[in-house]
Design a protein around this nucleic acid. Sequence first.
DNA 1: TCCGACCGTCAGGGTTCCGTCAAGGACGGG
DNA 2: CCCGTCCTTGACGGAACCCTGACGGTCGGA
Lengths: 238, 238
Amino acid sequence: MLSPTGDTPRTPTRVLVIDDEPQIVRALVINLKARHYAVDAAHDGATALQLAAARHPDVIVLDLGLPDMDGVEVIKGLRGWTRVPILVLSARHSSDEKVEALDAGADDYVTKPFGMDELLARLRAAVRRAEPVPGGEDEVVVETADFTVDLAAKKVGRNGKDVRLTPTEWHLLEVLVRNTGRLVGQKQLLQEVWGPSYGTETNYLRVYMAQLRRKLEADPAHPRHFITEPGMGYRFER
Amino acid sequence: MLSPTGDTPRTPTRVLVIDDEPQIVRALVINLKARHYAVDAAHDGATALQLAAARHPDVIVLDLGLPDMDGVEVIKGLRGWTRVPILVLSARHSSDEKVEALDAGADDYVTKPFGMDELLARLRAAVRRAEPVPGGEDEVVVETADFTVDLAAKKVGRNGKDVRLTPTEWHLLEVLVRNTGRLVGQKQLLQEVWGPSYGTETNYLRVYMAQLRRKLEADPAHPRHFITEPGMGYRFER
DNA sequence: TCCGACCGTCAGGGTTCCGTCAAGGACGGG
DNA sequence: CCCGTCCTTGACGGAACCCTGACGGTCGGA
């Protein structure tokens, strides 16, 4: 079928594991890394939200029983700004708990103790769903007169050579390119790239927009593709 | 893969239930209809595939134990042409079965006997995931003989070229266009653009209406689209 | 005809916003 | 432990934008 585990992935799928029980985390991390996932782990809700914003995982495994905050609150906190798949783990078998978590925005609910094979299969299903349509309407490669952006491979080319971008530069570029032609407000840009707690630090945008332009624009002083709309935000045009 | 045929925004979610046990089907149909889903039912795999193609459901509930064909084959048959969410029902608790079904393309796996509340919650989750992004490609474009306004992209075009608007100009235009054909009072205009504490500063309106007309009207001295209603307010006509 | 109310136009000044540069700190690899 | 990369932060000049006041024009009523 479609890349279950074994094949060589372009970029490894990033998983964020949130659980306060060390042995569960260890088991998950070992199994995930063996299958070439990139794994981050957090043992409380606050760290989890922070890590999610910082690392932008492709899927999240969340234990509802956290020491610092209610698991449902973590779900809501994430859903406020991202649609990343969330797979909930819980010792509670109660139907109400499941309904609450799912309606808060979770994608799946697995009760402990769980079979590792099943969990991994559900994880694959969640990731697969979130993938862009392979041959479909979504354009994966965007070309301009000056450079090329491959959203799937996370690569940028210019004059036949690869351009090296830092993680933050790439995130910023990705958000802009995914909204080609549309104006993206500075607040939205900040929240999507730096996390939901940002919104006024427009100097970040100024610095990183300058770096993108320096690396990609033919004439960085007179940008043709990364256009500033004063007081509102930025717009990518190809 | 939503709304394959042209339909109106508020259509009920269409569910296709595939199960050979009449009592299960009945229970599902009753519960779903009570929640305003539109339900189709099939008792075997062949009928199911046919119905899925004919009715384009928004979500499918599939029992793996069918009389005529293996449930996994049904999943593969569906996945050959659609990404519609598939929620699998099964009496088998075996981990292998789950993994096989999920890797074949199922979105979720519920073992019988199941709680109706949980099933409905998982169904909601599956449907929600498939929804297009909320702020997405609405393509709200208003055209006049002289210019074009794209509300979603915050873009204004004239003679094929983009017109640059300042934040205040854009905001004013937005309010007027959202009330196309209707008179918008000066007080309302001031409050929506400048904030609730404004209401008498009509000179602001005069200045910014003039700028909009200069940028968008073919003959700013004799406006055709931004019409003044003396003593009352302004009106946008396309 | 005079007058007042209302609107359109223009230009200057204060303020906000943006691009640029550089320095300092956090982090990870050698 | 050092070094390179990346992110953050502050400062500053210049550009863009918003507010403001003044003037002239039109229209209707006294």
